[in-house]
Each structure stands twice: as structure tokens, then as C-alpha cells.
Amino acid sequence: MKKRWYDYLWIVELTYLVLGFFNILFAWMGLLFFFIPLIIAAARGTKGYCNRYCGRGQIFGLLGGRFGLSRKKDIPRWMKSKWFRYGFLIFFFIMFFQMLWNTYLVFAGAQDLRQVVTLLWTFKLPWNWAYHGTLFHPGVAQFAFGFYSVMLTSTVLGLITMVLFKPRSWCVYCPMGTMTQLICRAKNRKGDLATEQKG
């Protein structure tokens, strides 16, 4: 099958993760990975981002598929259930807002900048070597640390389920994927699948 330009977007994702080890402020770029899928879903009513452009999915696909770092077993039934997918989305939201709250506290001067990346919402990794000061408020850096924590945590979770189950198992419970699917469902509620060919 012919490769398209978007089949190489895994390079962008990898570059993003690597840059976070050198200067944490690059973490802000990750907002693109949040907004582009939502914009595509809201404007076009498709999961075009998941289907074509998701670099993270491509990394898992390459590592688990081509490099064989996956057992390629079925994901457990509960992990693809609606309550787990929506539950994980809600949990993710809560943790995201907690991160925004910490950023706010630094902006408000109620809390000092913490130069740590929190992995799996628990493990605080010292990350001061990737911080070289900012021209802006320390709150800008706090957001970067928090956002990079989110991105690194989801990558680690994705890698774990990639090894245990199928390469792109992350896609099953990816909060962005769940959210964009919800948007598409809402947008296409009136659309009739029966008029098109059914699987």
C-alpha cells in the first residue's frame, strides 16, 4: 500500500516526546494533539485524526507490529466496555483539571513552581534538567510540566497495553478517541446507517 505523508506523523510524536527531555516548554506544542482531533470531529464529524494522523497510534503500531513488541492477544472484555472507556475519560478529565488547578495556583502566587513530571499520577520524577527558565510567568512552565506529565503517562500506559495486548490497544481506551467518537455520535445521530451498507 502506498505511503502517504501522514503515515510519517509518528516522527512528530517522537520528536515531541524527545524535546520534553531537553526543554519542558516544548510540552505546550502537545495542545495541538488535543485540539486537532476535537476540531476535526466537531467540524467534519469524523475521527479523521485517529484514522489517519495520530502519531501516537502509529508509534504503537510500528513498535508492536513491525518490531514485534506485542503479544497480539485480545484485550480483556472489561477494557473495551463502555463503563471503562467513559470512566477512564472522566478520570482523565479530573486529573487534567487538577493539573490546570495547580497551574492556576502558580499563576496566582499561592504555590511555587514544581519542576517534576508526574508519571501515572503518582510517581514524581525530578525534571529540573529540562528547565532553563522562562521569559514568561513560572505558571507557563508549571503548565508545561503538567501537560508533559499527561502525555508521558498516556504513552507509558499505551506501551504497557501494547506489549500485553494488541499494538494499538491504547486506541480502545484513549480519552481523545472516546471523546471524538462521542462528538461524532452526537453529530451524526440523524444520519441513518441503514441507508448505507451495514457491517
Binding site: 500500500m1 470531529a41 464529524g45 469524523t46 475521527k47 479523521g48 485517529c50 484514522n51 489517519r52 497510534g57 503500531g61 473495551k80 472507556r85 494499538r168 486506541c171 480502545v172 478517541g177 472516546t178 471524538t180 467518537q181 462528538i183 461524532c184 455520535r185 453529530k187 451524526n188 444520519g191 446507517l193 448505507e196 451498507q197 451495514k198 457491517g199
Partner: peptide
Amino acid sequence: VACGCCAKVCPLSAIQIWRGVRAVVNA
């Protein structure tokens, strides 16, 4: 979950994601 992994590997483009909701097979 409409991720589109199936559509990517189908040699005949017989499976597609229908409006971001689910995969649909062209029989």
C-alpha cells in the same frame, strides 16, 4: 471504537469508518 486500524490494513478498501462512529464492511 472507530480507530480505523482495520481500514488501514484492508487490501481491498472494503472496510471503512462510518462518520467516526463505527467500522462498516462493504459486503
